[in-house]
Simulated scan of single mutants.
Amino acid sequence: LVETIGCSGMTHSAAMAGEILPGKTILEALNTDLVCDAINVAMRELFLQIVYGRSQTAFSENGLPVGAGLDDLGKGLRSMTGTIFSTKAKGVRYLELTEGYILKTALDKDNQVIGYQFVRLGKMMEDIRHGKDPKEAYEKNIGTYGRFSPEQGAVKYIDPREE
């Protein structure tokens, strides 16, 4: 059974996968259309790794060098695991995704999450390391994703750690 799926750089699709895949067998998971080609390809590659016992380097041109990480893929990113919780009673709660630490989620009239506000922790820490005032670095690195404004349909905002 699929217990978890991890993906870096495609956390929105990974969030969808986190909602759809738990409890499915590997075959059911592979047969699930997750809309995002990157996640579908990732599922195929995970399947190949499980079946054939290969590592990620088997699918990279010339393999990945020892010690390769997010620093090779994008400045200001950090290694992290997306954290998303979901219950029938409260719905989905995004806590942290690749963009950063989730500050608020925007809900629509049906109480569905339609967007979120986040702080880019990697970029914020870079700014602080380079002498920027922490409060200024924090404020500079706040962003939003999805339909976050009232004009875009947000009727309520919640702190996912409080509600």
Rank of each mutant, 00 (worst) to 15 (best):
I20K: 04
L21K: 00
L21H: 09
L21F: 04
G23P: 08
K24I: 00
T25Y: 07
T25R: 04
T25G: 06
L27W: 04
E28K: 09
E28D: 10
N31P: 00
L34D: 10
V35K: 11
C36V: 01
D37C: 01
D37F: 08
D37S: 14
N40Q: 05
N40T: 12
V41L: 02
V41K: 10
R44V: 02
R44N: 06
L46D: 05
L48S: 09
Q49A: 03
Q49H: 06
Y52S: 03
Y52G: 01
S55V: 05
Q56R: 14
A58D: 11
F59H: 14
S60T: 12
S60D: 01
N62F: 10
N62D: 07
N62I: 07
G63M: 05
L64G: 09
L64M: 09
P65N: 00
P65W: 02
G67K: 01
G67S: 02
A68M: 04
A68H: 09
G69H: 13
L70Y: 14
L70F: 12
D72G: 08
D72C: 10
G74L: 05
K75Y: 14
G76D: 04
G76S: 06
L77R: 15
S79K: 07
M80L: 11
G82V: 03
T83G: 01
I84P: 06
I84L: 05
T87S: 15
T87P: 03
T87F: 09
K88S: 05
K88L: 01
K88F: 05
A89P: 11
K90N: 10
K90A: 09
K90M: 06
V92M: 06
L95T: 08
L95D: 08
L95F: 14
E96V: 11
T98Q: 13
G100H: 07
G100F: 05
Y101A: 01
Y101P: 03
I102T: 14
I102G: 05
L103N: 12
L103P: 12
T105K: 04
T105Y: 10
L107P: 04
L107W: 13
D108C: 02
D108H: 03
K109D: 12
K109V: 11
K109R: 02
K109A: 02
K109N: 01
D110K: 00
N111T: 11
V113G: 00
I114K: 02
G115L: 03
Y116F: 15
F118A: 04
L121E: 15
G122E: 07
M124G: 10
M124E: 13
M125W: 12
M125E: 13
M125K: 12
E126Y: 06
E126C: 03
E126T: 15
I128R: 02
I128S: 04
R129Q: 07
H130G: 02
D133E: 10
D133F: 11
P134R: 00
P134A: 01
P134V: 09
K135Q: 08
E136I: 15
A137I: 13
A137W: 14
A137F: 13
Y138C: 02
Y138T: 13
E139W: 13
K140E: 11
I142K: 04
I142G: 11
T144D: 14
Y145R: 02
R147H: 15
F148I: 06
F148E: 12
S149H: 14
P150E: 09
E151F: 06
G153P: 10
